[in-house]
Amino acid sequence: MATTALTPVARRSAGQGRIVPVATMVLVIMVIWYGFTVYLNARWQFQVFDRAGEDWTLWQFVAGTFSQDRPVLPAPHQVIVELWNSTVMQDVTSRRSLFYHAWITLSATLLGFVMGTVLGIALAVLIIHNRAVDRSLMPWLIASQTIPILAIAPMVVVVLASIGLTGLVPKSLISTYLSFFPVVVGMVKGFRSPDALQMDLMRTYNASRGEVFAKLRWPSAIPYLFTSMKVGVAASLVGAIVGELPTGAAGGLGSRLLAGSYYGQTTQIWAALFMAAALSATLIFAIGAVEKRVLKRTGVQP
């Protein structure tokens, strides 16, 4: 009785309890951002006023820093306007549309992420079943992640282009390179998570390695898989964007960032950054949604 009466109340207050802190944080960030907008764009604004040679008020000055064409730091509303103009106001197939570029990046991200996840799981399977692989492979995997991706990405693109692979594949491979690692680490831990009793139980049934894997190790590793995939998909997106930097004109959020910095279009850069962040958040949210459904079906205690 008491619990059924309490639950809806607790849920409602939890919902309210989330909005207030999030809104407060957004407000604080906005205030700081606008403050920096004034500060960072001030020098250019002084020059503008000097050249005009007219008197100006403080209000005109602040308004000026908020509406420059090529600000050092665009104001939030400028970024929002740019986002609006480059998404809703554009045809999605247009090269001016951020959705068009986001789709290019997303396709490379997803392909790379799927390959990275499969590769990561495969390597984890090898590592847990073979001591020699465990000993010899793991240091290399760790070393592979210490190489700065910005250094290796152009080489991957150039090498693959020389053997005729351009476009989606090189970018996906860079995504794969970044996203397989969290999956390997997470899945090795996941596959090894069954305790001694659970393993002994399978032994008393004289279960084969394959059966132990299918009926014990794999289900035990599922929660680890989703955690790894959330890290992996974010890394994948970074990989795809980095992969787009050297390819330049081919499109994608990365090329959008690069073009923005070539032409001093800071607002365009920020808009692309926000698009990338939104994409990443959406992907992680999607994995979280799948995770929730799968875990519910496998009876994980709520």
Partner: peptide
């Protein structure tokens, strides 16, 4: 065993 060792996902 000492503990039930039931698989929690089943």
């Amino acid at each position: 065993f000492q503990a039930p060792a039931l698989y929690p996902w089943r």
